[in-house]
């Protein structure tokens, strides 16, 4: 990979930072749990492109991308299942890559392009992955589903780009990925489905990949 051009840093001035640092320096050494916060969380300006719409927002730096989407922007399609990166229900695409939106601060994604489940369909035309999930009953309660679908969409791009997974044979050789069911299962393992719709999920991904059962 080439060195990416460093993107402009956030517009938080150096002076502000130092001021705050001095204030809270006084509190150092106080046992964590007993400590009263001495600095108010400041509001930071951010710009995101969310589902192709540019949004300028003022946010508390503590707000995760997940809570920004769900609580501030009312994009509740992205789900909170564990809030600790352990279930995948919060999966969204950032600059086309799947991530757990619960384990990143919104502010850290400043300037990025974010696609949530609400942004996959083109108007009333569902994304082929969404259609495949319905046809193959790749869900039951539906709560993990937005994360599963976003994850699956990214999966196909990753496979296309030749990215190996833990079950790819001879990963020391650079060659196209053969998307077996085992590959799909491994690559979808960051999304837990407690209802146990895994069989339908694999079938949906297989179909959206345009492939027969291997």
């Amino acid at each position: 990979m080439d060195d990416q051009e460093s993107k402009p840093a956030l517009q938080v001035s150096r002076r502000e930072f130092v001021e705050v640092a001095v204030v809270s320096g006084l509190a150092a050494g106080v046992p964590a749990a007993a400590q009263t916060p001495e600095i108010k969380p400041r509001i930071v300006n951010c710009t995101f492109t969310i589902n192709k719409q540019k949004q300028e927002l003022q946010i508390d730096p503590r707000v995760t991308l997940l809570d920004l989407l769900r609580e501030h922007l009312k994009l509740t399609g992205t789900k909170k299942g564990c809030d600790h990166g352990q279930c995948g229900a919060c999966t969204v695409l950032v600059d086309g890559r799947r991530i757990n939106s619960c384990l990143t601060l919104a502010i850290m994604q400043n300037g990025r392009e974010i696609t949530t489940i609400e942004g996959l369909a083109a108007g009333s035309q569902l994304h082929p992955m969404q259609t495949a999930f319905i046809e193959h009953d790749g869900f039951q309660c539906g709560y993990c589903t937005p994360g599963q679908v976003c994850s699956a969409v990214a999966l196909l791009d990753e496979v296309k780009a030749g990215a190996p997974s833990a079950v790819t044979p001879r990963m020391g050789e650079i060659r196209p990925i053969e998307l077996s069911d085992d590959e799909i299962r491994e690559r979808m393992s960051g999304n837990i489905c407690r209802c146990g719709a895994y069989e339908g999920i694999v079938a949906a991904v297989r179909e959206a990949a345009g492939r027969r059962r291997v």
Binding site: V12, R14, E16, P61, L105, N110
Partner: peptide, 19 residues
């Protein structure tokens, strides 16, 4: 999470100084 300040430096030196 306890409130915190946030700083996003553009260079390694800025990051180290900021620390």
């Amino acid at each position: 999470m306890k409130p915190f300040s946030y700083f996003c430096p553009a260079t390694v030196d800025e990051a180290i100084q900021g620390y």
